[in-house]
Amino acid sequence: MSTATQVDPATPAGSTKALDQRRPLGDRGFAILALASGLLVLVILVWIAVSTTNQAWPWFTTEGWKIFTNNWNPAANDFGALAFIYGTAVTALIAVILAVPVSVGIAMLLTEVVPRRRAQPIVYVIDLLAVVPSVVWGLWGILVFVPWLNHIYAHIGSAVQGLWILGPLFGPPTSGASFFTCGVILAFMITPIVTSLSREVIATVPAIDKEGAYALGATRWEMITGAVWPHSQGGITGAVLLGLGRAVGETIAVALVIGSSAVITSHLFAPGYNMAAVIANQFGEATGVFRAALFGIGVLLFVFTIIINVLARGVVERSARRKRGA
């Protein structure tokens, strides 16, 4: 601690000037290094936006507003991306609808029902689910899940054919590799993140609110709806949005099980396509405007996920702030 002896003990307590002047070079260097690493995040995000937009420029200029048409035919130089945007929206929505009730249920189970010691194994299982790589879900999906669902979809399809609403949604044509299969696998994949974020939010509910509800004679479920839910609503909305963001950006599992057919259809059991999957599957053979189009879809995907994530983080932070203030 040689710096300690360098400080003039006669320096008045109110002035730190002498101390500042002797700040060694290494100290300042370290501060700059840390700042640079922090700024790196911003640099990378801006760089991603600029470099991919730059690559995608030919698509935007040659197609103009036609990029939002439903006409994807690389052989004829038609690059309308609407079918992929539609596929992304549909699969992500299915995933969120399936995953959210289950995730919030598990989060409630972990925080309000099961005692802490017994909750730990459940947390391990959820973590395990999070560790299974996307490509393994895809491999299992295409080789095991899809062939199995083929028959089930065919049965459901013939049962609801011609029925009001159900017919157009679940009727034929059916295929194991479809929007719905993709949504289900995405649901498995986003469950861990939605669960753990909801759990964090629910854990912040003050014990006094919960005890108050119990003291008034509430059952556990009444306590959850009356004390836990109003408190954690905002945070859970954020968790759901983050899950949505994940589902939108997930690539490899989707590329394997979605069926690779660029159509817009109400039939959920029919093969479809989405933004991430088309980039993964077609980038290898793409050149010229085709490649630019795939880059453009990437830019759109980047913009969508950034918007969803900014919204989600905003919601989470706002609800956290409100809770601290209360």
Partner: peptide
């Protein structure tokens, strides 16, 4: 930076590949 770093966690991995 903290906020954007959280947002960056949500950037799809395929975008990193394109980048």
């Amino acid at each position: 930076i903290g906020f954007m770093s959280d947002v960056m966690t949500g950037v799809p991995s395929i975008i990193m590949g394109l980048f």
